[in-house]
Design a protein around this nucleic acid. Structure first.
Lengths: 354, 354
DNA sequence: GTGAAAGCGCTAACAG
DNA sequence: CTGTTAGCGCTTTCAC
């Protein structure tokens, strides 16, 4: 505390530009004054535009540097009517499905010069609407949203005429907007096909929230596969509840106790698959000998040595990056309506549970 | 495509306010014109400020509603010199440690009326600097950063005089800035203490990146525990490499093959612990009988039925929310320097691997 | 209670 | 090549 600041004084530069200037934000006006030019010229120099001689440009840039000038994107945004900012609205970043999606989105946004607001809605449509409102007021240039349900009328109404949006991972049936989703019907199909071809019969289905669209599609694929192989769907083995691991855990145990149990199960996602596996194992079942399980998503857990879950992998990172891609393209060329909707094929990863 | 839009026409309102107005953004000037008042009055009404009669206020609000007015936070920010926006700079959201931290930060920010830019740096200091620059230009009100190393001089220099920052999860030794970290020394201590008291001897340590500060502190706790129990640290069992699961996997297998192996290991984080467990198991070791393992973090994986990892839990969510808390408090009262630095005690979760 | 006017920091015509 | 000027949409004095 009482130490003399010898060194600092010693090192102080003769020019006091930097120290003073950086205390309060320096603007192009300050630079203009310093350089004896109009601030239009400063703007031109700073933005590398035509209309300044190389000489003055160099001088201006040097002064800007010296004064530690930081351009104000807010002010620029006000006149250019763009913020170089996007909103990413997802249900919950702690759900292992989303971090990769978010990463893909952020990385692509960054490449294109945009930043991303992260918004978690906790699967509440009210929060989705609240966030959309906030982001409109912040004048984000566009929105990526992974809606928690396929009831998106209220979202679309809110967003209409305000800003472009693209859906990711989940999209309403008949939207005008762009989207990137995975082919859930196909995913359900290949999961079921694999089980059928491996000789499992009958096969059950344990899925999550109805109304989001995804489960319904996966179940459709499940039915399609049965039909393709001339098999009847055992409706008493089809359950749609929620995405909690415990739900699946108890459900499977109930099934086992009542001795009404299929030889294999297609789970709505990996979390449910894990619940099923644990519930069955704890009742002495062996996986896949007594019960085969296929999950959905391929979260990092699935590939763990101890788990080795056979699952339908969704390209999460790509979904994130492609959705931003579509949005940015739309922003840069509003007329370009092609490649607006993409459906990515998921991929069956065969490990040891089926 | 060729369907006549009968219904839509039928439903169209006689007033065309909304349709027209929402096409291009309506401003307070538009409202003012509509209401026959100055736009100062509109501003006052909209912000619930003194200086408008209840009557005109009501009228203005009604018109604003009718015209579907959306306040422009950018313009407001320009004059108020605040954006109600914070930056969250972390290494990698796909590292399971961060989603909870991000969630805590986002939720608290949201409560305080702020939004959060999500920035992943991939553990690159250059990216940290690049992002700080961008966020300064976007005039975020403050910054939360989880630096990838304790070499933060360049960060601090960049940030100086520009905006307040608080560190989270990792902070340089001698910073003037606020931070929220966990007591890593204590964490290393209780992990080691538990192993010692359970009779394991000798005990090894496998940690990650040096230079970030965290590993060093955990190792310090490891040493402290040995000293407290009058035990020698077996330096040949102390390894500091990186945070890749494979690294730990191969390291432990090498140790086993060379028959130089401790009875227990404190791992730098849960990922490493998992690598150790798998490496050992695959060589026929039984956990914890042949080798006990304690992890660090308590990522969701750790509590899985199949894993049951004994670990030192860090309060990730709280770290996120508290760091925003400190930052917001600082923003709202720049003079308030108390409660700026918090060190949270981690907690030993005893499961089945030690 | 209300309006006029200045200005936040910047870009973009439009003149010279 | 350079300067002047008019905004972007809003808040905030300062008069009336």
């Amino acid at each position: 505390m009482h130490q003399l600041p010898t060194e600092r004084v010693f090192c102080r530069r003769t020019s006091t530009f930097e120290e003073n200037a950086s205390l309060m934000n320096v603007t192009i006006k300050d630079i203009a004054k310093m350089a004896n030019v109009s601030y239009a010229s400063v703007s031109r120099a700073l933005n590398g535009k035509e209309g300044v001689s190389q000489a003055t440009k160099t001088r201006i840039l040097a002064i800007a540097q010296e004064m530690n000038y930081q351009p104000n994107e807010i002010a620029r945004g006000l006149v250019k009517k763009q913020t170089l900012t996007l909103g990413l609205i997802i249900p919950d970043i702690t759900n292992p499905f989303y971090p990769f999606l978010a990463r893909g989105a952020e990385e692509r946004a960054n490449q294109a010069g945009y930043n991303l607001f992260l918004c978690n809605t906790n699967y509440q449509i009210e929060n989705e609407i609240k966030y959309i409102q906030i982001l409109i007021e912040k004048r984000v240039d566009g929105l990526i949203i992974s809606p928690s349900s396929s009831q998106t009328e209220r979202l679309e109404e809110k967003v209409r005429n305000a800003l472009p949006i693209v859906y990711v991972s989940n999209a309403p049936q008949q939207t005008q907007n762009g989207f990137v989703v995975s082919n859930n019907t196909y995913g359900g199909f290949i999961a079921t096909k694999h089980l059928i071809e491996s000789g499992y019969d009958p096969i059950g289905f344990i899925g999550g929230f109805q109304g989001a669209g995804m489960v319904e599609d996966r179940l459709q694929g499940f039915r399609d596969a049965h039909r393709a192989y001339g098999m009847e769907v055992r409706e008493d083995f089809v359950y749609l509840k929620d995405y909690h691991q415990e739900t699946a855990y108890h459900l499977i145990q109930e099934m086992i106790r009542s001795r009404q149990i299929p030889k294999a199960i297609v789970a709505g996602n990996d979390i449910l698959a894990l619940g099923i596996m644990e519930g069955a194992k704890n009742l002495g079942f062996s996986i896949p000998a007594d019960l085969a399980v296929v999950g959905f998503d391929d979260i990092p857990l699935a590939s763990m040595e101890e788990i080795q879950l056979t699952t339908v992998k969704q390209p999460q990172y790509e979904m994130g990056s492609m959705s931003v891609d579509i949005l940015v393209r739309l922003l840069e060329n509003p007329a370009d309506l092609k490649t607006k909707k993409v459906i990515l094929d998921p991929q069956l990863i065969v490990r040891k549970t089926a």
